[in-house]
Amino acid sequence: MSMVDQHEENRRDFLIMATSAVGAVGVAGAAWPFIRSWSPSADVLAQATTEVDLSSIQAGQMVTVPWQGKPVFILHRTTQQIEAARKDDGDASMRDPEKDAERAKKAEWLVLLASCTHLGCVPQPIGTGEYGGFLCPCHGTHYDTSGRVRKGPAPKNLAVPHHEFKNDKTLVIGKALA
């Protein structure tokens, strides 16, 4: 050890610092594939959107379709249901005020994420609640024909998932990710 050059030892050795830095970059880089392997895989991403054929859903009829593993209500609204929803647009007592037109891209089609904003139960189909809408059976929240919360413990309206009408007959729920 007597041969150790004290001067060299004390100097901030650039080479060792640089090598350590390059090595650290490599370790961080090597971690990345492992971290990324937890993100949704290609086959899961391919399920990001759900296509629904609307041609067989009659006015007044509601279907439940799975989208990203969650239930989505698709309601073909009747004129009365649309009017009932629009009539209440200005209701000041609403907990989470929103206009019906903001929620339904096309007035006759209402697309809702069927998950009660209270504690995540699936509400019952159209016509089960007051206001002609949906009743959540768990804790008695009532949603109207636009899916807005009107009564009960839920804090917010039923969410409207991202959706687009590819053509008159085809609805695409969700955004493509793959």
Binding site: L15, I16, A18, T19, V22, G23, G26
Partner: peptide
Amino acid sequence: LTVMLYAV
């Protein structure tokens, strides 16, 4: 990296 390690 290996060249640097060799130098060190």
